[in-house]
Design a protein around this nucleic acid. Structure first.
Lengths: 264, 264
DNA sequence: ATTTCGTGTGAACAAGTTGTGACCGGACTC
DNA sequence: GAGTCCGGTCACAACTTGTTCACACGAAAT
């Protein structure tokens, strides 16, 4: 049970329809009841009897985590904080023994989304988890498989690949996710945001992964569509996607109104 | 720079928009206490003694709503549902008299983000509201990324850039943050305050950074929009933003919106 | 008028940011 | 077990930005 055997599925498909949650608790009866309800509901769930490292939680690609602070012992607060800061998009629900106001406030301030006192009704816990996940879900890509065409390239989410003139760019999963994110946003994306949405957890300061993958992407884009540039750097901020053809005028204007030009 | 352990303070996101919330309740004492705490915290808030139409809530441009279901009477559930579906980006916290599990579950299912039982500690309520907003704010509000237009220039937060006649001013990140701060405050800002909000930490006495950046800003503004002056010096105090056209009268009028009044 | 202090300005300097190629280790394939 | 693919780290160079400094200018104070 405590084993963190994580099947390494494809990288962050992010289109999951069934919620995936983990419960860190030791109350056998509670876990049993909860297990039944969750199974009946078709949620993917996993019961853990002790805290697991934040990295392991990342690998599980959870939507929500239910945590009994008592299980983590005196380091519970620290653990809570670490998990919340490392996985900003994870819904964290603390479900623990009766507590004081200041304890609850502290937990919420550290990043928990909700605090429930035991004993609690499993249906209420599930409703709270649903409420916490509801918003997070909204940010999953709305368009499921609609292809995006920009400049000379076409992005096909259903094939997990991008094409230029019907020729695949041979993007790796990460490269593809990065390209899809950039192409579906018409604004500057900060590195932290990119990392969080492609990698699925918080970027540590100084990580250059985004830069490196942008370079790899640009390389493949350039090879497939040399006349265009797609990914623009905003110094000190991040990157922005905008197909710009080399030969003609700079595509800077395309962002705002394409105002009519008159000779005069 | 002196860099006294400013580790995490690297160009802070500074999306520090003050929360705006409304409370629908009739408990005078509760409202009074809450009012004090919210004022101390600098939140914009408004106390309402009866439900208002969803349209009115939209106009208030709230981040969060605290609702006592009892105030809405027997139609409370319907009201809750209508508000939640009409304003999906609004954080809704139900704070009401003791209730049954099924009631709480029902409220959460209808779209509430949290359910608190009265009597509750105001700090806990605030923490719950914060937690709910934290999750919501991730999905950025459309109006937040809307640009500011002043005089001949347009400030586009989504592009981290300002434009004059669709031409970028080529502002650096700091210059942009400074301009955005000035332009979104229609009053004189002291240097210390500017420094604190743009740089993210306290200004040491005698630091001229703000002056230098104001100069750089003025230079770029002048190059892009020579007929106007935007940043005005208040000797011995600080700076104030106000677009003023050179030739004609001062453009004082165009600015003020008749938006609803909030305490704060 | 003269002094003092706060502000505007340009340039030199320091610090931070990004592009890039090389390299490393784990997972998978043959 | 060797080869390959992929994600990730590192170090370096080129570049941009941020900070500091000295001095000029102008407003307030004496």
């Amino acid at each position: 049970m405590s084993d963190v055997a994580t099947e390494a599925a494809a990288v962050a498909p992010r289109t999951h329809t069934t919620p995936r949650l983990a419960v860190i608790d030791r109350d056998r009866g509670f876990l049993q009841v909860l297990n039944n309800r969750l199974s009946a509901r078709g949620w993917e769930h996993r019961m853990l009897s002790s805290p697991v490292r934040a990295e392991a939680l990342v690998a599980m690609r959870l939507n929500a985590l239910v945590l009994d602070l008592a299980v983590a012992g005196p380091d519970g607060w620290e653990y809570l904080e670490r998990v919340c800061s490392r996985l900003p998009t994870l819904a964290v629900i603390v479900c623990t023994a009766p507590s004081s106001v200041s304890q609850r406030v502290r937990g919420l301030r550290l990043g928990a989304d909700a605090w429930l006192s035991k004993p609690c009704h499993p249906e209420e816990l599930i409703a709270v988890v649903e409420a916490a996940m509801r918003r997070h879900r909204r940010r999953e890509m709305p368009e499921l498989s609609a292809g995006i065409t920009a400049g000379e390239i076409t992005i096909r989410p259903d094939l997990y690949q991008a094409f230029a003139a019907d020729e695949s760019l041979e993007l790796t999963p990460r490269e593809f996710e990065l390209l899809r994110l950039l192409a579906s946003s018409d604004r500057v994306l900060r590195r932290e945001e990119i990392y969080e949405r492609v990698w699925g957890y918080a970027m540590v300061h100084g990580d250059r992964s985004v830069d490196v993958f942008v370079r790899k992407l640009r390389q493949k884009l350039r090879a497939a569509s040399p006349e265009w540039s797609y990914i623009h750097t905003h110094f000190g901020i991040g990157y922005r996607f905008e197909p710009t053809s080399q030969g003609a005028g700079d595509g800077l204007a395309a962002e705002l109104e394409p105002e009519p030009v008159f000779a005069g």
